[in-house]
Simulated assay, not measured.
Amino acid sequence: MQFQTQLKILGAKKFRDTVDGVLYDNTKLFVEVNLNDNNGNAVGSASSEMQWGTSENFAKIASLQFPFLANCEMEMVTNGKTTKTVINDVRPVTNQAVAKSGA
């Protein structure tokens, strides 16, 4: 199931290395998400980690000023046991400033 949404990208981290004979190659994005608690114990926003393909994707956004808004293509995937949402494409929104304190 694919869908598009606009996200506030707070940061990014790449990793490419072999650990115990297994190659790991990924980029993780840290995106702003709303805190929602029906009991009133949480307000505001937090950061959530999302997968965005290989470490090559990191170079596409590394020179941008963070945080920034982006139109993102996302997809829900499963291994049969757990389900997660991954980012397939990131298109930064141009000409839109994002305040450092949050927008």
Rank of each mutant, 00 (worst) to 15 (best):
T82K: 14
T85C: 08
A12M: 03
N88V: 12
V33M: 06
V98S: 03
G44M: 07
T94G: 04
E73M: 11
L64M: 10
E75D: 05
A59P: 07
G44L: 10
P67A: 05
N39I: 06
I9A: 01
V93C: 13
T85F: 00
L29G: 01
K60H: 05
D37F: 01
V98M: 06
V93S: 08
A99E: 13
F30Q: 10
T78V: 05
T27E: 01
E73I: 10
N79Q: 02
S63V: 12
Y24E: 04
V22S: 04
T27D: 03
D20T: 07
A59G: 09
N26Y: 14
A46D: 15
K100Q: 12
N79T: 04
A97R: 14
V22L: 01
E73N: 08
A12C: 08
T83N: 10
G21K: 05
T5A: 13
L69E: 12
M76N: 12
K8L: 10
V33N: 06
S55E: 11
W52P: 00
N79P: 03
T85R: 07
G44E: 03
L10T: 07
N26K: 15
Q65K: 12
E75C: 02
L35Q: 07
Q96S: 14
Q65A: 12
D17C: 04
K100W: 10
P92H: 09
L10P: 00
I87W: 03
A99Q: 12
R91C: 06
N38G: 15
I9C: 00
G11K: 05
S47N: 13
F58D: 02
L10F: 00
K28P: 00
D89W: 13
N41E: 14
M50F: 15
M1Q: 13
D17K: 13
V19C: 02
G11V: 00
V43E: 13
F30Y: 11
F15T: 04
E56H: 08
E32R: 06
N79I: 01
V98P: 02
Q6G: 02
V93R: 10
Y24R: 13
